[in-house]
Simulated scan of single mutants.
Amino acid sequence: MDARRMVSAHQLDSALFAVALDDGQRFRIDLVEDCPLEAGAGLDGLQILAPDAWLCPGSVGLVQRGEVRCPVRALAELDARDYAALGRLSAQRDVALLDPVEVRGARRHGFRGSPDFCFAPRFMRGWSEDRKGLLVEVSPMRSGGNRFYRVELAGSCPALASARRIELHSGPMNGLVCGNAGDHVRILPTPEGLGAGLFDHDAGLTSSIMDQVASLGTCPVVAVYPREEDRAR
């Protein structure tokens, strides 16, 4: 791993990092278990020290944040899905549970997403379905340079087979879909699929139409990550 090319990092605890490079490669870095390195925010203050800046499995390397240096125990390459899962866990562990009366410390609060494992549905341009789930196209300028995201669903979602319109909703209500609890795809009806004569211009949607809309259902989202095929393009 060329440490000079790091563009993002997620720290799960004092001994585990996930790092991405500008060429799309992603790595997991494990440190010695007794490392006193405190958790930090992404790349802030993070340095990887190795001969000629190249960190290799079995070679000598150090991770430094601030004044603390810790030896690298293991290095392994990750795919986009596993990197996204580690990043999502890191973000979830960073959500602080606050005392209702008194708050101490400077730890940041609330969930903050990353284009490594999240996208904003408002920037969605299109979608298609394949055996891996949903493939969503978004605005690269608004998604960390990523154009396509894989969206894995929990179990089968038969309603997608005939769907022409969908919406993606954020469970935490923060405008991001990341695979967090409550994130889901909602299958929307097409105008011609609502049935002729079921719309009352005075009363609006009739109960029959509302029943049709409700029957289309939702599908939980369990994982989001950039499409692996686009790496290094």
Rank of each mutant, 00 (worst) to 15 (best):
116 D>I: 04
156 S>V: 08
83 Y>D: 07
136 V>A: 06
134 L>R: 04
174 N>L: 10
112 R>P: 08
167 E>P: 05
153 L>Q: 06
141 M>V: 06
143 S>G: 05
178 C>P: 00
113 G>Q: 00
145 G>T: 14
168 L>M: 15
101 V>I: 06
183 D>H: 11
116 D>H: 10
84 A>E: 06
173 M>N: 13
146 N>G: 07
111 F>I: 07
152 E>W: 05
103 V>N: 13
111 F>M: 05
131 R>F: 14
86 L>C: 11
100 P>T: 05
184 H>N: 14
80 A>W: 02
143 S>E: 02
121 P>E: 04
170 S>W: 03
94 D>P: 04
138 V>D: 00
87 G>V: 08
97 L>Y: 03
77 E>M: 13
104 R>Y: 12
145 G>P: 12
116 D>R: 09
117 F>C: 05
90 S>F: 02
117 F>W: 15
86 L>T: 06
183 D>C: 12
136 V>N: 01
145 G>D: 12
172 P>I: 01
85 A>Y: 03
148 F>W: 13
113 G>V: 01
167 E>Q: 11
133 G>I: 00
143 S>A: 12
115 P>F: 05
169 H>E: 14
131 R>M: 13
177 V>K: 00
113 G>F: 02
171 G>M: 08
174 N>D: 15
101 V>W: 05
173 M>A: 15
79 D>P: 14
123 F>P: 00
155 G>C: 12
167 E>T: 01
151 V>T: 08
77 E>T: 14
182 G>P: 14
159 A>L: 12
77 E>A: 15
120 A>H: 09
121 P>R: 03
114 S>W: 01
129 E>Y: 13
109 H>K: 08
179 G>T: 03
137 E>A: 12
125 R>F: 05
125 R>P: 02
89 L>Y: 10
125 R>S: 08
168 L>I: 02
120 A>P: 02
138 V>M: 02
183 D>W: 04
157 C>P: 00
130 D>V: 14
107 R>N: 10
145 G>C: 11
103 V>L: 09
128 S>V: 06
151 V>D: 06
141 M>S: 10
132 K>G: 15
117 F>T: 06
89 L>R: 15
149 Y>A: 04
176 L>W: 01
134 L>S: 04
103 V>G: 10
113 G>S: 05
125 R>A: 08
99 D>G: 11
91 A>T: 11
166 I>K: 06
81 R>F: 05
131 R>Q: 15
88 R>G: 08
84 A>R: 04
122 R>Y: 04
125 R>H: 13
152 E>S: 15
182 G>W: 01
146 N>A: 12
143 S>V: 00
129 E>V: 10
95 V>A: 02
133 G>C: 08
87 G>P: 08
109 H>S: 12
176 L>C: 00
106 A>D: 11
124 M>L: 06
175 G>H: 05
115 P>R: 00
138 V>I: 09
164 R>S: 10
78 L>K: 09
187 I>Q: 02
89 L>K: 08
110 G>E: 03
133 G>N: 09
101 V>Q: 09
91 A>W: 01
82 D>V: 09
129 E>M: 13
127 W>I: 02
121 P>D: 06
78 L>C: 10
119 F>H: 00
138 V>G: 01
101 V>L: 09
157 C>Q: 01
117 F>E: 06
126 G>Y: 10
186 R>V: 15
175 G>K: 05
144 G>T: 02
166 I>G: 07
81 R>C: 13
147 R>V: 11
101 V>K: 06
135 L>E: 14
